[in-house]
Amino acid sequence: MRILVYADNASWLKQLRGLADKLEAEACALVFDGNLVEEASRLFSRVYYSSLQAFNPLQAAHVAAKALEKCNPDIMAAPCTNKGRIVAGLFSALSGGLPVSDVISVEAEGEELRVKRLVFGGTASASLRVNVPAVLCVSPGAMPEATYRGSIGVVEELRAESAGGIEVEFKAREAVGVEPDKADVVVVAGRGVKRREDLSMIRELAELLGGAWSVTRPLAADYGWSDTWIGISGLSIAPRLYIGVGVSGQPHHMMGVRGAKIIVAVNKDPNAPIFNEADYGIIGDLYKVLPVLIRRLKERGA
């Protein structure tokens, strides 16, 4: 079997290489980011690279078509990120492959695949039988990160035709301290945090733990306290430690934190759904619990 992988960061290159290893497939990679070429060449024997005008979907489609022609894969794989889902959709339309998103496991059974995916906001999993060609959009943390192969792959630059019809302008996210999708520890504020000023507590806790802070969607999208949020429609994270503070744990949020090694929740409602998915839960008022937690961490630091 042969697999073509699209990835938008280094961790995803390793996770999708992990998928290829699991399927014992020959693997090529497609990247649109020049900074990923070297990393990709340590993991894949063949790397297709093209620098797009920002993330121009028409150009992405042209380049994806070229990469498909060169690699001729049975399986195409991409991460369950915004761009990954777009590229997966393009792969499917271009190749006729059946797309499956939110994939958490894959097994080859003869010429078929048995695929498990999350559905219903991550509360359930569905098992499917899928013929190749297939397009798998993989859930974060579902595949083990592969290690380097020891040899360096061949890099081939694909020319992106100028894409008339659509123009794209990109503005990089302003770094607010540590980026949540790159941090080892992420503290997330939910609607239990009542005022914008109170985010300073969340930030202080994150700093003491050497991590990043973020919010649930309502705090970002409705209140405008942050540009990004954690969850299926925002960032997916897989830190060593996630601490949800005043977060109820609704499926669409939890889907973005499933990859965390340890989940901690602070919530005053003993029936909050997050406690069903937490390793450690403190049932109490965040306005009383957080000051103690912060003090104890400072004492330790001192």
Partner: peptide
């Protein structure tokens, strides 16, 4: 589609 079932990752669920 072969099967749909509840999905819960095993967590320690230690509550205080």
């Amino acid at each position: 589609l072969e099967n749909v079932e509840r999905f819960i990752l095993p967590r320690r669920r230690i509550l205080m």
